[in-house]
């Protein structure tokens, strides 16, 4: 498999706790995101909830992606090329909010997450780079 001859700046890979949805990740996630996009239709939402695996088999996703959907493993879905706005449609299908999904990604309870936001949110200090993150732990 080929590689870019010119090295593209990917310093964003050094941001901890973050999966930047770049062109390569978008490529890996294409069919996963198409599945998520299909959940914009209420008839599709019903069909998915009635038999999740059968519905997922209609899309050319990887088995890893299907498993992550079934487990609602949100961070794994980001890693496998899901984009947060599309993942939100899965959360909405479950009757949950975006805020709830974000709290699951952080490993916090929704209330703890809301409390953090009410106190002004998460400071970037300690979260700018993976090395800075290691120093904070």
């Amino acid at each position: 498999m080929g590689k870019p001859k010119m090295v593209l700046d990917q310093t964003y890979e050094d941001i901890p706790g973050t999966w930047i949805f770049d062109a390569q990740r978008a490529r890996l996630g294409y069919h996963l995101n198409e599945f998520l996009y299909s959940l914009m239709k209420s008839s599709n939402r019903k069909e998915f909830l009635a038999d999740e695996r059968a519905y997922l088999m209609k899309f050319k996703m990887t088995e890893e992606q299907r498993e992550a959907v079934l487990k609602r493993d949100w961070n794994r879905l980001l890693e496998l090329g899901g984009v947060s706005y599309a993942l939100a449609k899965l959360a909405f299908t479950d009757g949950k909010s975006y805020q709830w999904m974000a709290s699951r990604m952080t490993g916090m309870t929704e209330q703890a997450y809301v409390d953090m936001m009410l106190k002004g949110g998460r400071s970037p200090d300690g979260w700018r780079s993976k090395s800075e993150r290691r120093g904070k732990r």
Partner: peptide, 15 residues
């Protein structure tokens, strides 16, 4: 403005 809505770093703000 500042925000992150994905991953373990979600909730980041920078006033």
């Amino acid at each position: 403005m500042s925000h992150q809505i994905q991953g373990p770093r979600a909730g980041l703000t920078n006033p």
